[in-house]
Write a protein that binds this DNA or RNA. Structure first.
Length: 590
RNA sequence: GGGCUCGUAGUGAAGUUGGCCUAUCACGCCUCCCUGUCACGGAGGAGAUCGCCGGUUCGAAUCCGGUCGGGCCCGCCA
């Protein structure tokens, strides 16, 4: 007897076949029992008549999620018995024999997509049951298709796939490492790579020219809804003898556009992808990963209000701050309590309050209007292009704070007014990130993003940077790709010149010896004819999340850790035997 | 490390201005009935010390303090 799949039964009318699967539901009519059997392709109805004695008495004992093997005849249903809601609803299988392959206890979580869904904690604890839900099955199959497209594209572009070590070195910059002790090296540790950064650059020195890998990356940092704890995946790539244009325009954009349209079935807001310098993105959108599906840009009104007598604005401007505003279309419909809610959000981001002017029936309503002159009110309305129904919200503080507050509000208002069309995708490149940034904690200048990218202007600019102010104006040839408000890829033209490398660290006061100690392999490699190279890495879990219309990245991963970095199914991390510790020459402090 | 928020039968929810709660409903579970259902139907039943500890009170699921756990965010994520 050939075993066939549930959805395939429909092509085997009048044949005796066998199907296997789980009991999706059982309907016992006393003298007639229906069993819906589910496999990974779908559901098919089994009819058990009393004439099939053994099968019938067995069917009376069957419960949900039992695993069955059934043989029977595929029979077309009478016209009035067909079920249009079921893919196999025109047929049913009249059972001859039933074998219970395994029983099941009543389930702690719902296996069906309709009805109530259990909370995430339980779903993760019983992930193997959660995965039985059709939507989870669909997600994992789609993810497999997604990987195929990635590999096919990279292959078409003549990239070579190389796997790099998982046991690697701890790196002094960046995220916190997972350390791995070894029995044969007491007192020393490997580290799991945060990214294959150094290996891929060494592959360029090795002459591979175009490398890629679907790389597992490990970071011991707190997770977020769009960021997994522990391990996650990047499509990592690196190319020699190219500039940023070739990486961005010729390699990365065509791939992401293919994914968005052909795979994701979504519409690109624009066929060309804007390049926005970091500082401009912060000033216009209040974010280095702006959602560009909607406008609502931040407008600077500091000049227009330079002579205002309104105390709050006046004082801030006098102390070097700014007054900026966003116009919310339809904002006048917001109730007082809704505005209070947005005010709370603004305060949480560091604002003192949230001033606004609403425009209704040709008039402006505002708690602050009485402090502003008629001409000031006029210029605000004109500059903000405000008309009836709109509300203009103000932020006034240090530039960075205002950008942060209004950037957050911009996103919140867009959510509230439904401006984030799930069928559309807006892409952008954020470029020219600051090479160095001010570290408020340490009260000193430090690397902004990563020390491996090329500072624009090279050694010359570095040498000339003799003050903190000058250092902070240097930008890196680095590019982040942004999709609907998510950072989905990051890359850079690398610094392949040992002297520029020494200088980049030298600006921060690090000695040549320090650099050699930390990046010895890279530096010595660069001394043997390193080609100029550039590359990037896509956060492929996150891209898949966006394309799947999910807002939580754990929904698109088979076995994720929870928000505390714990695998509640496997109970990891866990304690280990004293013997294991001793073998590793380790001791745990009490 | 910090902020906000949630925690009530196996599951999902209601109740939370203290008393009418001996805690309600739905799904699931158990027993019985039922030959055309497909979220089958009908009758009956079991199942919760309201996350935990303490306090206020004549009286606490409800108020207060602490604690544990989940979620979101800030920090962090070269």
């Amino acid at each position: 007897m050939t075993r066939i799949l549930a959805t395939a039964t429909i092509e085997h009318i009048d044949e005796t076949i066998s199907v296997s699967g789980w009991v999706n539901s059982r309907r016992d009519h006393g003298g007639l029992i229906f069993i819906d059997v589910r496999d990974h392709t779908g559901v098919v109805q089994i009819v058990v008549n009393p004439e099939a004695h053994d099968a019938f008495s067995l069917a009376e004992t069957i419960r949900d999620e039992y695993v069955l093997a059934i043989t029977g005849v595929v029979t077309e249903r009478d016209e009035n018995l067909k079920n249009p809601n079921l893919a196999t609803g025109t047929i049913e299988i009249v059972a001859e024999t039933i074998t219970i392959l395994n029983k099941s206890d009543p389930l702690p979580v719902a296996v069906s997509d309709d009805g109530q869904q259990s909370n995430e904690e339980l779903r993760l604890k019983y992930r193997y049951l959660d995965l039985r839900r059709p939507s989870m099955q669909q997600t994992l199959k789609r993810r497999s298709d997604y990987y195929k497209i990635l590999r096919q594209y990279m292959d078409e572009q003549s990239f070579t796939e190389v796997t790099t070590p998982i046991l690697a070195n701890s790196s002094p910059e960046g995220a916190r490492d997972f350390l791995v002790p070894s029995r044969v090296h007491p007192g020393k540790f490997y580290a799991l790579p945060q990214a294959p950064q150094q290996f891929k650059q060494l592959l360029m020195v090795g002459g591979l020219d175009r490398y890629y890998q679907i790389a597992t990356c490990f970071r011991d940092e707190d997770p977020r809804a769009d960021r997994l704890y522990g391990d996650f995946y990047q499509l990592d790539l690196e190319m020699s003898f190219v500039d940023d244009g070739e990486v961005i325009r010729s390699t990365m954009e065509p791939l992401i556009k293919r994914l968005v349209t052909e795979f994701g079935g979504k519409q690109l807001v624009s066929s060309d992808t804007p390049r926005i310098p970091y500082q401009e993105a912060m000033d216009r959108f209040g974010s280095d990963k702006p959602d560009l599906r909607f406008a609502m840009e931040l407008t600077d009104l500091s000049e227009e209000l330079a002579d205002t007598e309104f105390g709050v604005f006046k004082n801030t401007l006098a102390s070097g701050g700014v007054v900026k505003a966003i116009r919310v279309e339809g904002g006048a419909s917001l109730s007082r309590s809704q505005i209070d809610k947005f005010t709370d959000i603004a305060k949480r981001e560091g604002a003192g309050g949230l001033a606004y002017i609403s425009y209704e029936n040709g008039e402006s309503k505002s708690p602050i209007a009485k402090f502003l002159s008629a001409s000031e009110l006029d210029v605000i309305k004109t500059k903000m292009h405000a008309s009836d129904g709109d509300t203009v919200f103000f932020g006034t503080d240090k530039r960075e704070t205002v950008n942060k507050v209004l950037g957050k509000l911009r996103s919140e208002f867009a959510d509230h007014f439904g401006l984030k069309d799930p069928n559309k995708v807006a892409l952008a490149w954020i470029v020219d990130f600051p090479f160095y940034e001010w570290d408020e904690g340490a009260k000193k200048v430090d690397f902004g993003h990563n020390p491996f990218s090329m500072p624009r202007g090279g050694a010359e600019v570095l040498t000339a940077a003799d003050t903190d102010e000058k250092k902070l104006t240097i930008v890196a040839d680095q590019y982040d790709m942004v999709m609907n408000g998510y950072e989905i890829a990051s890359g850079a033209v690398r610094n392949h010149n040992p002297e520029v490398m020494y200088e980049a660290f030298g600006v921060l006061g690090y000695s040549r010896e320090y650099v050699e100690d930390k990046f010895g392999a890279m530096l010595s490699a660069f001394k043997f004819g390193a080609p100029p190279h550039a590359g990037a890495a896509f956060g492929i879990d996150r891209i898949f999340m966006v394309l799947s219309d999910e807002s939580n990245i754990r929904e698109v991963v088979a076995f994720p850790k929870n928000g505390s970095g714990v695998d509640v199914m496997m109970s990891s991390p866990s304690t280990v035997d004293a013997v294991q510790l001793k073998d590793l020459s380790l001791q745990i402090e009490e």
